[in-house]
Design a protein around this nucleic acid. Structure first.
Lengths: 187, 187
DNA sequence: GTTACTTTTTGATTTAGATCAAAAGCATTG
DNA sequence: CAATGCTTTTGATCTAAATCAAAAAGTAAC
């Protein structure tokens, strides 16, 4: 969803503010496979997905672990880089032809500071980030592989069919073999 | 740590702002065992722990699961109540004689809106909440019970000795029996 | 179609930690 | 100091999912 539209759905945006946001965010059309950020690099960019599917991941013991799938209307920023001045453990890559809007975090902070409404919205976006983590923690801690698979089917029915098995398995916190068995109903 | 001192460590606080904060937060001395919030209740209160130890928890399948230990200098708010107007799945209780400062979230929001510096700090506090969840998710997903135990020993050496085994076990995401065995070095 | 390569599935075995059950330690109260 | 309840430990068994290994299915390149 278009960034401005997204904002207008949540807050009232003055024409001046709208122009400021439009100008502050870059817009990029990116093909499948395009890396937006590689793990271990430093980037203070905030990403907004207007269209397409993007994946964030990190490398653990040489293995690629999917951390999240981002669909239209999602924000991402490396907390490590933007707030703690260190390299990002996360990488970000385009899974499906995407339209991405980006802005350096310090610039975004200035824009936000200029609007009470944006301040409130930015808090909401962060709260949602906390909630996403909280939900994922709960699912890893208390749900079985089968249950997590079912939840994901509900949440991302489309993604399940289109991305490689390995990405989904690592996202669910299970091995590819287990996911394959679950899918086949052999559990 | 005293709330005002905490704020001053992070930002510059004008005398007027300081007075406003002092007035807006209530202060309570609470004994061990005192419930600050019961699971299933609605509370928009933001808690700040000035002194003592507090625990947040929830009930899962009739079992009491410790979600976090809060020591001096920690904030807590039920996201569900404060932001989504629903009952809090979390409960909060005093583990050790504590000094707690509280403020309804809507009031806090007004205070924050009046100060650029507080806005920035509130973002940082939220970022830290995200990071805490992120770290906990990682530890549950990739670390063994033994490793989690060791990390906790480093992070909360004092708490480990003073709170009931069951609280620690559920916090670590393991059973009491397993924790007992780990402690005895029988693993 | 044949070859080569990647992705997915199937099978056998192992393992960390759970569960179930009971014993041992420790406090508190009369 | 018994008697009564907690909390913690110990022991035996079970289980979900990992690991290891190989077969099968897809995909692309020639």
């Amino acid at each position: 969803m278009d960034l401005i539209l997204y904002l207008k759905q949540h807050i009232i945006l003055s024409p001046e503010m709208e122009a400021q946001v439009q100008g502050a965010f870059r817009q990029e059309e990116l093909p499948k496979g395009h890396p937006l950020l590689s793990p271990g690099n430093f980037s203070q960019k905030v990403f907004y997905v207007e269209k397409g599917v993007v994946r964030t991941y990190y490398i653990k013991d040489g293995k690629d672990i999917t951390h999240s799938f981002m669909v239209e209307g999602s924000f991402f920023v490396s907390i490590e880089s933007a707030f703690f001045n260190s390299p990002s453990p996360y990488g970000v890559e385009v899974l499906e032809q995407a339209t991405i809007r980006t802005i350096p975090y310090p610039d975004l902070e200035k824009v936000i500071d200029g609007s009470q409404a944006l301040q409130k919205l930015s808090r909401l976006v962060m709260i949602n980030a906390v909630k996403t983590f909280s939900d994922k923690l709960y699912s890893i801690q208390f749900q079985s592989a089968q249950e997590r698979y079912n939840s994901m089917l509900e949440k991302f029915p489309d993604i399940m069919l289109r991305v490689p098995l390995g990405h989904i398995a690592s996202y669910l916190g299970i091995t590819q073999e287990t996911l394959s068995r679950i899918r086949a109903g052999k559990v």
